Simulated assay, not measured.
Amino acid sequence: MERQLPTLKIEGTTFLVDVEQMVLVHLDDPDTKIRFAEMDNEDTHYTLEYDIAHKDIAGIHTKNNDLKLVEIPRMTQLDAEGMALKYNVPLRGISEKMDYEVMVENPEIAMRMQGKLNRIEIEGHPFYVDFRMWSLRPHNDFSTQGISMEPLHENEQYEYFPEDTVFLYQPKKHELFEPDWSSITELPKDTVIIKFPMLKEMDAVGYAHRFNRPLKEVLLETNFKPVTQAIKRQLSQTTLPELFKENKERLAQEKVQINKDVKRKSRKI
């Protein structure tokens, strides 16, 4: 039987408290969700700039008269049982603890903080998520340095990452393949199309340390997992067919133009 989620009223509006996803969900409008990561974490509670008219977090649409600063209890008070289940810690006394205290008591997070590296599975092969080396290092393969995090990080910075960014991966070499995107017209042999999770989802602890961010903030933004998965995409699930088509048409036109130029020069000679 699915556990019934507790509720919280904000200025007369009822929200479901979903600590598994770390969000407040509008009871009558489930598409409206307020993430705890969007609030200010004061440790003993959260503060939220709330739009009374839209019954949502304040934004550019919020009028001054509709803006109200409200206090939200910490998740250990809102749903102690949910926090105990989520972080695999004892229920007793949990409501007296700060959210961050409970998070770092989680055995998997505790082991990561003690130095155990997270892993990501790519086409069935485990890679170590190593922020110190700034790479994804393949298990038991010392012939390669693996996959640099730099191109993954670049795409996150420029916000290309969330939905449509994919990479070409060579399973036999445990490396990415970087083609000439201006001339590629088909999927190269022995490559597959891979979509990666965001870096902070692969390892919130390593990410926080690398970018000098408070761990309590990063843990609110992610659901910590010691092992994540890279997702294989089919060609039809990407925009690559359109790119291949555009390149073929452009290269064909360039070839025609080159042939015309050659014939023109031949006539002059």
Rank of each mutant, 00 (worst) to 15 (best):
N155V: 06
N155I: 00
E156S: 08
D164M: 13
V166H: 12
K172D: 06
K172G: 06
K173D: 06
K173Q: 07
H174I: 01
H174S: 05
E175C: 14
E175A: 06
S183Y: 12
I184V: 14
E186S: 11
E186I: 11
E186T: 15
P188D: 03
D190S: 10
T191M: 05
T191K: 08
I193F: 10
I194W: 12
I194K: 00
F196K: 01
L199I: 10
L199N: 07
E201W: 13
M202A: 04
M202H: 01
M202F: 04
A204K: 03
G206S: 07
G206W: 00
Y207K: 00
A208Q: 05
F211N: 08
N212R: 12
V218I: 15
V218A: 01
L219M: 02
T222Q: 09
P226D: 11
V227L: 14
T228F: 09
Q229G: 06
A230W: 08
I231H: 11
K232Y: 02
R233Q: 04
Q234H: 08
Q234C: 13
Q234W: 15
L235T: 09
Q237R: 10
Q237E: 14
L240T: 09
E242F: 11
E242L: 15
L243F: 10
K245N: 12
N247M: 11
K248C: 13
R250D: 07
R250T: 14
